[in-house]
Amino acid sequence: MSRIDDRDLARLNAYLEGELDDGERAALEAQLEARPELREELDGLRETVALFASLPEPEPPEDFDRAVQRRIRRRSRGRYFGAEQRRERLSQVAIPLAALIVLALIAFLLSPGRLEILLEPPAAEDAPDEAPAPLEDDPTPPDASRSRLPPTVEPAPPSRPGPAHRRIEYRYSVRATGESAAIEAELRRRFGARAVRAAEPADGGAVVEVAVERAQLGAALQRLEDLGPVERSRVEVDGAAARVTIRVVIDERP
């Protein structure tokens, strides 16, 4: 049996690769018949190539791409691929913070006397004990609003807490100084037809009841604050209809 040399190996590989021309291939195939060791070598090489090609392709780990980006970010001192990290950091801080704020806000809004802490304590002259008039969608005519007496809407009797649920009504007062008709007109402009002359307090001026939806309370209070300082708030019974009565005291100056 003859030894297989580099020349043989080169020809066998060229044969496997299909690189031999017709004459070279025929010559080699004749040799393969004559030299069993050459045939054995060829079979072994063919099998090796096939085995090697059959190996599963190694796959990088799932987080490979991110790991590369992290490495570049680190090397570039955050100049590249830093946005994701910033987003991650932001989400780590901002989301819990936002959740905390929302929870605090909810807790605040659900507390019965929530706005009392923001407003001045009750002043007797601004807080008549009579029950407020829960206003309906009352399109009080402008002419009626100019007439101080009688109130266009009679105050409703105070609601009482029912056995099934707690009913709360919130009342806020603002002392607005100015000419009565002008203030009323301003209130109507701000609150539409829902501003209704309700009563005349003993110390003069007028009381205007404004009904707003609870969801609009914040905006309504802001409009009140624009008008003058909000002097007090008071919890009254009856709020199940999600209606808030804002009581505006007009301190009329002739």
């Binding site: 190996l9 080169a10 590989n13 070598e41 090796t48 190539v49 090697f52």
Partner: peptide, 17 residues
């Protein structure tokens, strides 16, 4: 490349066998 390849294949074949 070719010479390295056939040597590599031959060596690998011997090892595997």
């Amino acid at each position: 490349v070719k010479s390295r390849l056939f040597r590599a294949r031959a060596q690998l074949k011997s090892f595997i066998q």
